[in-house]
Computed example of a mutant assay.
Amino acid sequence: MYFIGYHGTSELSALNILSVGIQERFLSPNGQIGQGFYIAKINGTLPQWGAANATYTARQNQPYFTRMISFLTGEANNPWLDKAAQQTILKIYTTRPLRHCKWNIMNPGDLEFLKTIRYDTDGPGLDLKRDCQWLQMVVPPEEIQYLRLRRDDGIFERPHNWIAKSSFEGERDLRSAPRARARSL
């Protein structure tokens, strides 16, 4: 299996995903880079942002006491915190290389991702160290069957299946890609 990244959600959604899998009917048709299951490259700002969005309404409805216990002990140790309000990070693996996934840089609110487009050599360009925290991939519905999910156990892993293109054109054979790249060098 290839480790590809992280997905932030609520504990209630995580339990559902882990027990029955990712269901296409729950995928938003209006995602930033298309319909599919969104995955962040690193466990940090982006999956935490996704988990916060997934739990926002449920968290607002929690009593102050419950929120304070979560702050002091951590959400996983709070028996009074509703599962819909508990933030959870999942690790995502794939059983084979993905052919039709897309990825981009997403910075909510300020559209900073547009700076990756360089109009001239003096343009700001891409700051990989800072911007990689916002690198996201969307796996289209037809490839969700190849995903395997587990809870984040806190052990760092490097992604092994991030493709350097936004998507493959047509039905190109993945096995020929390394040979073609070697010939062009």
Rank of each mutant, 00 (worst) to 15 (best):
I155A: 11
E157R: 13
L98F: 01
Y6L: 03
G8C: 00
Q133S: 09
A76L: 12
N161D: 15
A177S: 14
P141Q: 05
L111F: 11
D127T: 11
I33G: 00
M137E: 00
I39D: 06
K41G: 03
C132R: 11
A84W: 02
F168I: 14
P63N: 12
D127N: 15
L174G: 02
P108E: 01
N78H: 07
P63L: 08
L135W: 10
L12A: 13
E11S: 03
T9F: 04
I89V: 05
A85W: 06
W49S: 05
Q60G: 06
S13N: 13
Q87D: 00
Y2D: 08
I117L: 15
E171H: 10
S13V: 04
A177D: 14
L126I: 07
Q136C: 06
W162I: 09
G5D: 08
H7T: 05
E11P: 01
S19A: 13
D122I: 10
T88P: 05
R158Y: 10
W49Q: 08
V139C: 03
L18R: 03
N107W: 08
I155N: 12
C101W: 12
A177V: 15
Q133A: 11
R172W: 09
M106S: 05
R158N: 11
G5R: 05
Y38K: 06
Y38H: 03
G5V: 00
M68P: 07
L126T: 09
T95I: 11
V20A: 00
R130T: 13
K83L: 11
P63G: 10
R158M: 10
C101H: 13
R151Y: 15
N16A: 10
G123V: 00
A14M: 02
